[in-house]
Amino acid sequence: MDFSFLFDNFVELSVTGLVLGSVYALIALGYTLVYGVLQLINFAHADVFMWGTFVVAWLFILLGANSTGTLLTALPFLLLALVVAASTTGGLAMLVERVAYRRLVRKRALSYIVLISAIGASFVLSETMGIRDRIVEAISGLLNGIAGLFGGSVDLTTLLADYLNNPRGPTRLPFEIQPTTLFMIGEFRVRDTDVTVIVAALIMMVGLDFFIRRTRLGREIRAVAQDPEAAALMGANSTSVVNKTFLIGGLMAGVAAVLFMIKTGQTSFDIGVVLGIKAFTAAVLGGIGNLRGALLGGLLLGIAENYGSALFGTQWKDVVAFVLLVLILLVRPNGLLGQSLGRARA
């Protein structure tokens, strides 16, 4: 174990761990929200996030943003990407609920049957992106039909040619964001990209927590999570509430996708596998069904991975994270903040 490396780079490892953990936390929200309401695991959620990362990359390509600049320079494109990516992932999440969940939930299917359906939806989303050339051709044809009404044309297959020729390979954000140092902590430079990811994740988490606890829809979500039949007697439409819950989780996945691309600048059709497992681990670690637990679990997991990499080497990063999960669950089986969504106080 290399304790000297950990101590010498403690600040850097902590900050970068918080950045990584912030992304885990935002993805974990989707698992937590759905589990809190349906007591089911939505394994397709990570692939909804994956689609959001591609939307960000492709939007930059379509807008011609293919240069190098600071985060401030990229801000107008990122804000537009945030709207488009969140809209896409929100719509996909609602589609997943409608196709893979609703009928099974209404028929009170066994939980493992619903789980298999969710895994199937996950593979459909990831593999569909893996043959994205067919998707883009279909979208291009649709847009050409619309543009033709106004005497124009849109050729997405030409604009995205480089990305269609290698559909199962990595896709890079064409705009290279150059981090700017905001301040120093010892010898470590704290960059604007790191601060943006952490602060944005915290703001989204606080905003969602306030929404769930203080708004009418939030109260309906908590009511359905606690007792669906009683909530229905009080006028809550459980089907609509579940669909909106998926929508909210999808919107959070869109935000996470933008923050992920700011930090890494690269995505691929199969990133949902690893990130999905990590985010699910974060949700369980914090107490699945608890919004604040998702934040705590994500941040702890990100930091634990970095510390583990420093002590044992990067190849042990995942081992350290999951050993931590096992140890905490042995002591607290419900997670660190094991309070269900339905019992969260207003």
Results as ranks from 00 to 15, higher is better:
Pro167Thr: 11
Pro167His: 11
Arg168Cys: 06
Thr171Pro: 01
Pro174Tyr: 12
Phe175Pro: 00
Glu176Ser: 13
Gln178Lys: 15
Gln178Glu: 13
Gln178Cys: 08
Pro179Ala: 02
Pro179His: 04
Thr181Val: 14
Thr181Lys: 15
Met184Leu: 15
Met184His: 15
Met184Ile: 12
Ile185Trp: 08
Gly186Leu: 13
Gly186Asp: 11
Glu187Arg: 15
Glu187Met: 14
Phe188Lys: 05
Phe188Pro: 06
Arg189His: 12
Val190Tyr: 00
Arg191Thr: 11
Arg191Ala: 09
Thr193Lys: 05
Asp194Met: 15
Asp194Val: 11
Asp194His: 14
Val195Glu: 05
Thr196Ile: 09
Thr196Cys: 09
Thr196Arg: 09
Val197Ile: 04
Ile198Trp: 03
Ile198Asp: 04
Ile198Gln: 00
Ala201His: 03
Ala201Val: 09
Ile203Gly: 00
Met204Asp: 00
Met204Gly: 10
Met204Tyr: 09
Val206Thr: 09
Gly207Asp: 00
Leu208Thr: 05
Phe210Thr: 10
Phe211Asp: 02
Ile212Ser: 09
Ile212Cys: 09
Ile212Thr: 08
Thr215Val: 02
Thr215Ser: 01
Leu217Asn: 05
Leu217Val: 08
Gly218Trp: 07
Gly218Lys: 07
Glu220Asp: 12
Ile221His: 04
Ile221Phe: 05
Gln226His: 15
Gln226Pro: 06
Asp227Pro: 03
Pro228Asn: 00
Pro228Lys: 11
Glu229Asp: 10
Ala230Val: 05
Ala230Asp: 03
Ala231Gln: 01
Ala231Thr: 00
Ala231Phe: 04
Leu233Lys: 12
Met234Ser: 13
Met234Thr: 08
Met234Lys: 11
Gly235Leu: 08
Gly235Asn: 09
Asn237Tyr: 07
Asn237Ala: 13
Ser238Asn: 11
Thr239Gln: 13
Val241Asp: 01
Val241Tyr: 01
Lys244Asp: 00
Leu247Cys: 09
Gly249Lys: 03
Gly249His: 08
Gly249Glu: 04
Gly250Arg: 15
Leu251His: 07
Met252His: 06
Met252Lys: 08
Met252Arg: 08
Met252Trp: 10
Ala253Arg: 03
Gly254Tyr: 01
Val255Thr: 02
Val255Glu: 02
Ala256Asn: 03
Ala256Trp: 02
Ala257Leu: 03
Val258Ile: 04
Phe260Gln: 03
Met261His: 05
Met261Gly: 07
Lys263Asp: 09
Lys263Phe: 10
Gly265Asp: 02
Gly265Leu: 01
Gly265Gln: 06
Gln266Trp: 12
Gln266Ile: 15
Thr267Lys: 05
Phe269Asp: 06
Ile271Pro: 03
Ile271Arg: 02
Ile271Cys: 06
Ile271Val: 07
Gly272Lys: 00
